[in-house]
């Protein structure tokens, strides 16, 4: 039995009366990329901060490669590298000065530290910018430097807190490549993200977190299967057709449809994109005219709705049942809020 890279049991963090992290269990195996997925304020950063010894653990326990976080924080710090959501590097120094400083804090002599800094700057494509002040760095360069700084001591476990939040798509892609490189070299990575596609691209396993609790765990395939592979979105020409349309679609696909009456919009999760054709044919047969059709990836919201047992799978959602119309309305409102 090998030691887990991260083992957390019943982790709790309270800020006043708010339970920011409310009893989370986590097992990360060595060599894997584990994604923690959740919306803003779900408690992802707080959880990471506790594991990285930055925040006290209020209840529960955590260990990193078998070393207890609470009783031996100094040892834990020798096993981890942390890349924060807000770049944890010194704005007033140049990129090179930052890396040299951190390398020297790790105990390297000044020649070795300069060497380390040169290596890392090259590896992260920052050699040309090495002597520029960080104030003049772009967001993407700052994140790359931050990641580089986390790798100085080649820690066996790397924490990445929302590594691409706020980056443009191209820079985001570069960051993903960098992270994949790390994985190839055998690093264990615990990463948090708000983006389903990011977790999908990078993580072997994913835990979904909401309001300080873990609501699901599995591979990205398993999570997405819980809401269908993709989503069919239809905008009706006549909003009055809504009930009939929802009934028709639900009958063909065997899943309830979510309605947004204000926009005359109907969405339904599908197993296969082919199902879209079946649904459209059913609408045509019903004489329902449509204005717009889209087949979309399931969004994080839909995953949440499915996982937290809210609207998308709830019984009253099934279209056409007049008795539960009010309840359905209430749930649509809820959905709008969460979007």
């Amino acid at each position: 039995m090998t030691r887990l890279a991260v083992e957390a049991t019943g982790l709790v963090k309270k800020f006043g009366s708010l339970r920011a992290v409310d009893g989370i269990d986590l097992q990360v195996r060595p060599g894997e990329v584990f994604g923690v997925l959740g919306p803003n304020g779900a408690g992802k950063t707080t959880m990471l901060s506790m594991l990285a010894t930055l925040l006290r653990i209020d209840a529960g326990s955590a260990s990193i490669f078998g070393v207890d976080v609470r009783s031996e924080p100094h040892k834990v710090r020798q096993l981890i590298g942390l890349t924060g959501q807000y770049a944890s590097v010194d704005e007033k120094l140049t990129a090179r000065e930052n890396l040299v400083l951190f390398a020297r804090i790790h105990g390297q002599g000044s020649a070795a530290a300069r060497h380390t800094a040169d290596d890392l700057l090259e590896r992260f494509g920052l050699t040309d910018a090495g002597d520029r002040l960080l104030e003049k760095f772009s967001g993407g360069m700052r994140r790359r430097l931050d990641l580089a700084a986390s790798l100085i001591s080649s820690p066996p476990l790397i924490f990445l807190d929302e590594p691409t939040t706020g980056l443009d798509p191209r820079t985001r892609g570069q960051m993903w490549d960098t992270i994949r490189d790390l994985v190839r070299q055998g690093s264990t990575i615990l990463l948090t993200t708000q983006y389903l596609d990011e977790a999908d691209q990078l993580a072997d396993r994913i835990a979904v977190i909401d309001k300080g609790r873990k609501v699901a765990e599995g591979t990205s395939g398993e999570l997405k299967a819980s809401v269908g592979r993709s989503t069919l979105a239809v905008r009706l020409a006549d909003p009055d057709d809504m009930d009939a349309a929802a009934r028709a679609v639900a009958q063909v696909l065997g899943r309830p449809a979510s309605r947004t009456p204000e926009a005359a919009r109907l969405t339904v999760p599908m197993e296969r994109a082919d199902d879209a054709a079946e649904a459209l044919i059913a609408l045509r047969h019903g004489g329902i005219s449509i204005q717009e059709v889209k087949v979309e990836e399931p969004t994080l919201d839909e995953v949440f709705l499915a996982l937290t047992g809210a609207p998308a799978t709830a019984e009253p959602e099934i279209a056409g049942d007049d008795r539960t119309d009010n309840a359905a309305h209430a749930q649509h409102d809820q959905m709008e809020v969460s979007r």
């Binding site: 060595p30 190839r184 072997d204």
Partner: peptide
């Protein structure tokens, strides 16, 4: 999707 490159025996630093 990434694959596992090492399955466990991580050499920990002293």
């Amino acid at each position: 999707m990434t694959t596992l490159t090492s399955t466990g025996d991580v050499a920990l630093p002293e």
